[in-house]
Amino acid sequence: TSAQPATPKPLYLCSPFVEAALVKGNFKTIVMQPKYTDIMEWVAVNIFEFYQNLNQFYGVLAECCTQQSCPAMSAGPQYVPSRIPRGYFLTQNPRLNYTWINQDRKSVQLPAPTYIDYVMTWVQNLLDDENAFPTKSGRDFPSNFPSTVKHVYRQLLRVFAHLYHAHYPQILHLRSEPHFNSLFAHFLAFGKEYELLDVKDIKGQSGAVVGVGALWERWKEMGILEQ
């Protein structure tokens, strides 16, 4: 249609995969805070379960996510929307790479498997930490719980973003796309509801739509997620 160098659209934005879903209907039913319950408990259990479920899928895909295949924790090339509906073109700054803050508070580039391993270990330790995520009767949540949760959410979002960007074909080979899509859509709906989702994280430079950010927009268009 055009002479411009169009990159192929990511598979997760293409039909029929973009509409593949295990869970149909409005996520509100399972996202809304149940009346009279403690919001901390509600958020805590959901974060806990997102982690468990994502970890389960990462466990399957880990063999495909290696130092060689993924030397950087990338969430994809950045696209700017063109005039052509649903067509996206590569821009100058091609990758959205996440950096990890190391012990010296330095921002470092890590291979994706290392990065994800850090994230998953860190989250697991937090979830097992009675001070951060109390489970014993009578124990209260710490005052910094909301900010902890925000951090956890952000890192899990990056893992999702990387899997979509780098491993979606493998998800398709394993016929897991309805499951993975629903888990992610649920995750986004939850993040939106509790203000954990930072749009910056899934968009590249201002105005550009990056990787799963485009998916998010697309799902909103399609009514899978709320506007």
Binding site: L22, N53, Q56, V60, E63, C64, H173, S176, H179, S182
Partner: peptide
């Protein structure tokens, strides 16, 4: 499923069922 290890497929299936 050619490029995968032997237990990737059953593991994927398990993950799906669990979800």
């Amino acid at each position: 499923t050619a490029g995968f290890s032997d237990d990737a497929v059953p593991r994927a299936k398990t993950a799906q069922l669990k979800l």
